[in-house]
Design a protein around this nucleic acid. Structure first.
Length: 210
DNA sequence: ACATTAAGTGATT
DNA sequence: AATCACTTAATGT
Protein backbone atom coordinates (compact mmCIF):
# COMPACT_ATOMS: atom_id res chain seq x y z
CA UNK A 1 0.00 0.00 0.00
CA UNK A 2 2.74 2.41 0.93
CA UNK A 3 4.55 1.61 -2.25
CA UNK A 4 1.40 2.21 -4.22
CA UNK A 5 0.88 5.60 -2.63
CA UNK A 6 4.49 6.58 -3.13
CA UNK A 7 4.25 5.78 -6.80
CA UNK A 8 1.05 7.74 -7.03
CA UNK A 9 2.38 10.95 -5.52
CA UNK A 10 5.95 10.62 -6.74
CA UNK A 11 5.98 13.25 -9.45
CA UNK A 12 3.66 15.59 -7.65
CA UNK A 13 5.06 16.12 -4.17
CA UNK A 14 8.29 16.20 -2.22
CA UNK A 15 9.44 13.04 -0.50
CA UNK A 16 8.77 14.49 2.95
CA UNK A 17 5.25 15.50 2.05
CA UNK A 18 4.50 12.09 0.63
CA UNK A 19 5.55 10.56 3.92
CA UNK A 20 3.28 12.93 5.77
CA UNK A 21 0.38 12.15 3.48
CA UNK A 22 0.84 8.45 3.97
CA UNK A 23 1.13 8.99 7.68
CA UNK A 24 -1.83 11.30 8.14
CA UNK A 25 -4.11 10.01 5.40
CA UNK A 26 -6.85 7.48 5.72
CA UNK A 27 -7.52 5.43 2.62
CA UNK A 28 -11.18 4.82 2.03
CA UNK A 29 -13.17 2.95 -0.60
CA UNK A 30 -16.44 4.20 -1.99
CA UNK A 31 -18.88 1.98 -3.80
CA UNK A 32 -20.65 3.31 -6.84
CA UNK A 33 -23.46 5.57 -5.67
CA UNK A 34 -21.96 6.36 -2.26
CA UNK A 35 -21.46 9.96 -1.20
CA UNK A 36 -18.03 11.39 -0.59
CA UNK A 37 -19.66 14.65 0.44
CA UNK A 38 -23.23 15.65 0.90
CA UNK A 39 -24.92 19.02 0.95
CA UNK A 40 -25.07 20.70 4.37
CA UNK A 41 -22.49 18.39 5.80
CA UNK A 42 -19.64 19.52 7.96
CA UNK A 43 -16.33 18.39 6.59
CA UNK A 44 -13.05 18.25 8.44
CA UNK A 45 -11.03 16.51 5.78
CA UNK A 46 -9.95 16.97 2.22
CA UNK A 47 -9.74 14.16 -0.30
CA UNK A 48 -7.22 13.00 -2.87
CA UNK A 49 -8.79 10.85 -5.49
CA UNK A 50 -6.56 7.81 -6.01
CA UNK A 51 -8.76 6.18 -8.61
CA UNK A 52 -12.35 6.13 -9.74
CA UNK A 53 -14.70 8.95 -10.66
CA UNK A 54 -17.03 11.20 -8.70
CA UNK A 55 -19.69 13.47 -10.06
CA UNK A 56 -20.14 16.80 -8.36
CA UNK A 57 -23.60 18.26 -8.33
CA UNK A 58 -25.77 20.95 -6.87
CA UNK A 59 -29.32 20.55 -5.71
CA UNK A 60 -32.15 22.97 -5.01
CA UNK A 61 -34.60 22.74 -2.13
CA UNK A 62 -37.01 20.65 -4.18
CA UNK A 63 -34.40 18.03 -4.89
CA UNK A 64 -33.73 19.08 -8.49
CA UNK A 65 -30.10 18.42 -9.24
CA UNK A 66 -27.56 19.47 -11.84
CA UNK A 67 -24.20 17.83 -12.37
CA UNK A 68 -21.44 20.42 -12.62
CA UNK A 69 -18.35 18.39 -13.32
CA UNK A 70 -16.57 15.12 -12.69
CA UNK A 71 -13.55 14.44 -10.50
CA UNK A 72 -10.92 11.97 -11.64
CA UNK A 73 -7.74 10.32 -10.43
CA UNK A 74 -5.39 12.90 -8.90
CA UNK A 75 -8.15 15.46 -8.39
CA UNK A 76 -9.31 16.89 -5.15
CA UNK A 77 -12.48 18.75 -4.33
CA UNK A 78 -11.61 22.42 -4.17
CA UNK A 79 -14.94 23.28 -2.59
CA UNK A 80 -13.92 21.35 0.45
CA UNK A 81 -10.89 23.52 1.14
CA UNK A 82 -13.02 26.54 1.83
CA UNK A 83 -15.65 24.62 3.68
CA UNK A 84 -13.34 22.68 5.86
CA UNK A 85 -11.20 25.66 6.75
CA UNK A 86 -13.95 27.91 8.06
CA UNK A 87 -15.98 25.01 9.33
CA UNK A 88 -18.83 25.80 6.99
CA UNK A 89 -21.21 23.30 5.54
CA UNK A 90 -20.72 21.96 2.02
CA UNK A 91 -22.80 23.38 -0.79
CA UNK A 92 -22.29 20.45 -3.14
CA UNK A 93 -22.63 16.71 -3.26
CA UNK A 94 -20.01 14.34 -4.61
CA UNK A 95 -21.31 10.93 -5.62
CA UNK A 96 -19.14 7.99 -6.64
CA UNK A 97 -19.76 7.35 -10.32
CA UNK A 98 -17.70 4.17 -10.16
CA UNK A 99 -16.16 2.25 -7.28
CA UNK A 100 -13.45 4.59 -6.07
CA UNK A 101 -10.50 4.88 -3.77
CA UNK A 102 -9.76 8.08 -1.90
CA UNK A 103 -7.23 9.18 0.66
CA UNK A 104 -8.71 11.50 3.27
CA UNK A 105 -6.62 14.00 5.17
CA UNK A 106 -7.68 15.94 8.22
CA UNK A 107 -7.77 19.71 7.74
CA UNK A 108 -5.46 20.41 10.63
CA UNK A 109 -2.62 19.49 8.27
CA UNK A 110 -3.66 22.04 5.73
CA UNK A 111 -2.05 25.25 7.08
CA UNK A 112 1.09 23.43 7.99
CA UNK A 113 1.55 21.93 4.55
CA UNK A 114 0.70 25.15 2.75
CA UNK A 115 3.63 26.79 4.50
CA UNK A 116 6.04 23.88 4.42
CA UNK A 117 5.59 22.50 0.94
CA UNK A 118 5.68 24.53 -2.27
CA UNK A 119 4.37 21.55 -4.21
CA UNK A 120 1.31 21.43 -2.00
CA UNK A 121 0.62 25.14 -2.41
CA UNK A 122 0.95 24.67 -6.07
CA UNK A 123 -1.37 21.73 -6.11
CA UNK A 124 -4.05 23.58 -4.17
CA UNK A 125 -3.86 26.63 -6.39
CA UNK A 126 -3.96 24.56 -9.53
CA UNK A 127 -6.95 22.67 -8.26
CA UNK A 128 -8.75 25.94 -7.69
CA UNK A 129 -7.80 27.09 -11.12
CA UNK A 130 -9.07 23.93 -12.74
CA UNK A 131 -12.33 23.85 -10.79
CA UNK A 132 -12.99 27.49 -11.50
CA UNK A 133 -12.53 26.79 -15.17
CA UNK A 134 -14.88 23.83 -15.06
CA UNK A 135 -17.38 25.89 -13.12
CA UNK A 136 -17.38 28.58 -15.80
CA UNK A 137 -17.81 25.94 -18.43
CA UNK A 138 -20.76 24.61 -16.51
CA UNK A 139 -22.29 28.07 -16.29
CA UNK A 140 -21.81 28.68 -20.01
CA UNK A 141 -23.39 25.38 -20.80
CA UNK A 142 -26.37 25.96 -18.55
CA UNK A 143 -26.94 29.57 -19.51
CA UNK A 144 -26.21 29.67 -23.20
CA UNK A 145 -26.56 26.23 -24.63
CA UNK A 146 -29.61 24.36 -25.73
CA UNK A 147 -30.43 20.94 -24.47
CA UNK A 148 -28.91 19.11 -27.44
CA UNK A 149 -25.53 20.75 -26.90
CA UNK A 150 -25.72 20.19 -23.16
CA UNK A 151 -26.36 16.52 -23.77
CA UNK A 152 -23.38 16.27 -26.09
CA UNK A 153 -21.12 17.84 -23.49
CA UNK A 154 -22.47 15.48 -20.86
CA UNK A 155 -21.80 12.44 -23.04
CA UNK A 156 -18.32 13.64 -24.00
CA UNK A 157 -17.41 14.32 -20.38
CA UNK A 158 -18.59 10.89 -19.35
CA UNK A 159 -16.67 9.15 -22.07
CA UNK A 160 -13.57 11.05 -21.03
CA UNK A 161 -13.68 10.43 -17.29
CA UNK A 162 -14.89 6.86 -17.47
CA UNK A 163 -12.48 6.02 -20.28
CA UNK A 164 -15.06 3.98 -22.12
CA UNK A 165 -17.36 4.61 -25.06
CA UNK A 166 -19.93 2.19 -23.74
CA UNK A 167 -21.96 4.04 -21.14
CA UNK A 168 -24.13 1.97 -18.85
CA UNK A 169 -26.83 4.40 -17.94
CA UNK A 170 -30.52 5.00 -18.44
CA UNK A 171 -32.18 7.95 -20.11
CA UNK A 172 -33.80 8.73 -16.79
CA UNK A 173 -30.46 8.93 -14.99
CA UNK A 174 -29.15 11.38 -17.58
CA UNK A 175 -32.33 13.41 -17.21
CA UNK A 176 -31.79 13.62 -13.45
CA UNK A 177 -28.17 14.70 -13.90
CA UNK A 178 -29.21 17.44 -16.30
CA UNK A 179 -32.39 18.41 -14.51
CA UNK A 180 -34.69 17.77 -17.42
CA UNK A 181 -37.27 15.15 -18.30
CA UNK A 182 -36.64 11.64 -19.53
CA UNK A 183 -38.74 12.19 -22.62
CA UNK A 184 -36.54 15.05 -23.77
CA UNK A 185 -33.39 13.00 -23.33
CA UNK A 186 -34.89 10.01 -25.12
CA UNK A 187 -35.81 12.16 -28.11
CA UNK A 188 -32.42 13.84 -28.33
CA UNK A 189 -30.63 10.51 -28.01
CA UNK A 190 -32.82 9.03 -30.72
CA UNK A 191 -31.85 11.92 -32.94
CA UNK A 192 -28.15 11.30 -32.28
CA UNK A 193 -28.68 7.65 -33.08
CA UNK A 194 -30.32 8.55 -36.38
CA UNK A 195 -27.33 10.72 -37.18
CA UNK A 196 -25.17 7.66 -36.60
CA UNK A 197 -23.31 9.18 -33.67
CA UNK A 198 -24.44 6.76 -31.00
CA UNK A 199 -26.04 3.35 -30.68
CA UNK A 200 -28.84 2.87 -28.17
CA UNK A 201 -29.59 -0.26 -26.20
CA UNK A 202 -31.50 -0.81 -23.01
CA UNK A 203 -29.43 0.55 -20.12
CA UNK A 204 -26.57 1.32 -22.44
CA UNK A 205 -25.35 3.88 -24.93
CA UNK A 206 -22.50 3.21 -27.33
CA UNK A 207 -20.73 6.37 -28.35
CA UNK A 208 -19.54 6.05 -31.93
CA UNK A 209 -18.45 9.56 -32.87
CA UNK A 210 -19.43 12.77 -31.09
C1' DA B 1 -47.09 -16.12 -17.62
C1' DC B 2 -47.12 -11.94 -15.35
C1' DA B 3 -45.17 -7.72 -13.33
C1' DT B 4 -41.89 -4.20 -13.54
C1' DT B 5 -38.90 -1.02 -15.58
C1' DA B 6 -36.84 1.27 -19.72
C1' DA B 7 -37.57 3.42 -23.91
C1' DG B 8 -40.40 5.34 -27.95
C1' DT B 9 -43.96 8.54 -29.69
C1' DG B 10 -48.01 11.72 -30.87
C1' DA B 11 -50.36 15.51 -29.19
C1' DT B 12 -50.64 19.66 -26.45
C1' DT B 13 -48.90 23.70 -24.06
C1' DA C 1 -38.45 22.13 -23.92
C1' DA C 2 -41.90 20.18 -20.74
C1' DT C 3 -45.83 17.34 -19.77
C1' DC C 4 -49.37 13.92 -20.52
C1' DA C 5 -50.87 9.80 -21.89
C1' DC C 6 -50.18 5.83 -23.95
C1' DT C 7 -47.50 2.00 -26.45
C1' DT C 8 -43.82 -1.16 -27.09
C1' DA C 9 -39.76 -3.65 -25.69
C1' DA C 10 -36.71 -5.84 -22.48
C1' DT C 11 -35.93 -8.06 -18.26
C1' DG C 12 -36.84 -10.10 -13.70
C1' DT C 13 -39.61 -13.43 -10.76
Amino acid sequence: MKKKLKDFFEHQFEEALIDEIIDAGEVKFYREGEYLLNINENVNFFPFLLNGVFKVLREDKNGNEVVMYFLERGDTCACVFINSLNAQKTCIRAVAETDSEVILIHVNKFDDWMVKYPSFRNYVLESYNLRLKEMMEAIDTLAFKKMDERLLKYLRDKVQVLRTTSLNTTHQDIAYDMNTSRVVISRLLKQLENEGKIKLKRNNIDILSI
